[in-house]
């Protein structure tokens, strides 16, 4: 907690700022709680990844019969779109910390657009798989169970992230956060980075290893 107090410039002058100390400590609690939520979400993904690896080694080879290899080129392209949104999110938070609202707004909107772009790319990939190989969630054996479940769950997280960032953006426009007090934005950034790095693992395990 001492760290948080030192980190927050407004509470540096000590005991006189009772409310600011309350803010700093509440912020610390919320961020810790959010990090723990991310840990449990990570466990959720890990469990499904375990299921995928388990089914893959007990199954009929990978990709299963009837399913083509996944399109690495397009997936790499789509990954870069998502990773790029991670970078823009980082810039958005940095600019917020430095009080550049306009730059913040630009990067934030870029993040939302790139996130939506990733989702569209994933939709395009699903559509290709369905039209060309008739691969659907329930109709493609363990491929559906692992690939569609995991990427779909990740896509749902991206979708939730887009909603989350949109709400945060509207909140910043409405003046909910200040240059010193932006715990909500920090948590949004953590969430978005989390969604990004989950994709690093999914990308490696589904596309690079087949």
């Amino acid at each position: 907690m001492a760290v948080a107090v030192a980190h927050d410039p407004s509470s540096g002058s000590g005991q006189a700022h009772g409310v600011d100390r309350l803010y700093a400590e509440t912020r610390e609690l919320r961020i810790n709680g959010f990090l723990l939520f991310m840990v449990s979400d990570l466990v959720l993904f890990s469990s499904f990844i375990f299921a995928y690896l388990y089914l893959r080694q007990t199954g009929q080879g990978w990709p299963p019969p009837g399913i083509s290899r996944l399109d690495v080129a397009f997936a790499a392209f789509n990954s870069v779109v998502l990773f790029g949104s991670g970078a823009t999110m980082h810039f958005a938070l940095e600019n917020w910390k430095h009080g550049n609202f306009n730059k913040y707004a630009g990067w934030m909107l870029a993040t939302i657009v790139l996130g939506a772009g990733f989702l569209s790319g994933q939709g395009y990939e699903y559509w290709t798989l369905y039209t060309k190989f008739h691969a659907s969630w329930s109709g493609a054996g363990i491929f559906g169970a692992s690939f569609f479940t995991l990427t779909g769950m990740h896509g749902f997280h991206v979708f939730m992230g887009i909603c989350y960032l949109t709400i945060l953006f509207l909140q910043t426009v409405g003046g909910v956060y200040t240059k010193q007090k932006y715990a909500g934005l920090t948590m949004g950034t953590l969430y978005w980075h989390f969604v990004d790095i989950i994709w690093v693992f999914l990308f490696s395990m589904f596309y690079l290893w087949q």
Partner: peptide, 27 residues
């Protein structure tokens, strides 16, 4: 997370260069 983001971009780069992953039979 930034570190993993960098790792992810390296993976995407290598995949696009055809070093890892496979191009054959892509959809």
């Amino acid at each position: 997370m930034l570190f993993l983001l960098a790792v992810g971009s390296v993976l995407a780069f290598l995949a696009a260069m055809g070093v890892i992953g496979s191009w054959k039979g892509s959809a």
